[in-house]
Design a protein around this nucleic acid. Structure first.
Lengths: 146, 146
DNA sequence: CTGCATCCTTCTAGATACTG
DNA sequence: CAGTATCTAGAAGGATGCAG
């Protein structure tokens, strides 16, 4: 949608209104959303559901490493936020399908933009991290790690 | 630590390679980055530094609500990740300026995209949240919260 | 199959006090 | 001014067992 980013639309270039009034969790939309998708599994689940609808155990197998508890919690939160919809099939062995709502789907593009950046620059971050954490004479600057 | 994994460009549209191999924190670049900026203050600090360079206490006052400890930790992490640079002026009352590195500045556009989405759709999220948390007859569906 | 309840461990963030 | 050190409360995450 944007070719060259000569002008950044919101929060970065012009948004910040005041000296940031004591930011409560729900107060700042950006912080609120970032903290949601900043957890361990949300993005992964959203991305999977963005490709197609999934059953519960299907997600459980696809992510592999997530516990039932966390998968349930993640889906509950996403459902409560209106990003994911739940469809129950009253079959004999219960079957539940999850999918993204239109709102959830609308998150995909901007999320993709950030994911793109992460993939593109993760090497630089890792390099910088190793430079700071490992050896390097800069440790003498009094930065004994934390 | 070069990516022997077939690193894909855009996680959302075509990326997901395998059934997601047990995702360790540092393993997935996207998860790694998201967890960094998903904390309480990082985005706020990055955005402020994106507008201009700031001194420590200047940031402390601008954010207002952040403790010295958390501001220091946030800046340390950002510095270690190569997103923020620290400049010390050896004056009599010590003065330290913080600013974004080129890498940090490159994060602004994609971050802005997500911030844009958050601002635009926060109302819907809040509405859905209230619908699920509050009253609503749907509670009869056996969703007594947790 | 789906998912809730309980217990437990680790990580995050805040308050407070102290230093160069 | 610009931090560091300590301590603690709470949230996030995981393991396991039981139920519709």
């Amino acid at each position: 949608m944007s070719g060259t980013h000569t002008e950044v639309p919101s929060l970065v270039s012009a948004p910040l209104p005041h000296p940031v009034p004591a930011d409560e969790y729900g107060a700042c939309p950006v912080t609120d959303v970032l903290r949601r998708i900043g957890d361990k599994w949300t993005v992964l689940v959203v991305v999977l559901l963005g490709r197609r609808r999934h059953r519960f155990n299907e997600l459980h197998r696809s992510v592999d490493g997530i516990s039932q508890r966390m998968l349930t919690r993640t889906l509950r939160t996403l459902e409560q936020d209106g990003l994911v919809e739940r469809e129950v099939h009253p079959t004999v062995p219960p079957s539940v399908e999850y999918g993204l709502t239109p709102l959830g789907r609308s998150l995909l593009p901007p999320l993709s933009g950030l994911a793109d950046w992460a993939v593109a620059h993760h090497g630089e971050i890792t390099a910088a991290r190793g430079r700071a954490t490992g050896e390097d004479g800069q440790m003498a600057r009094s930065r004994p790690a934390q």
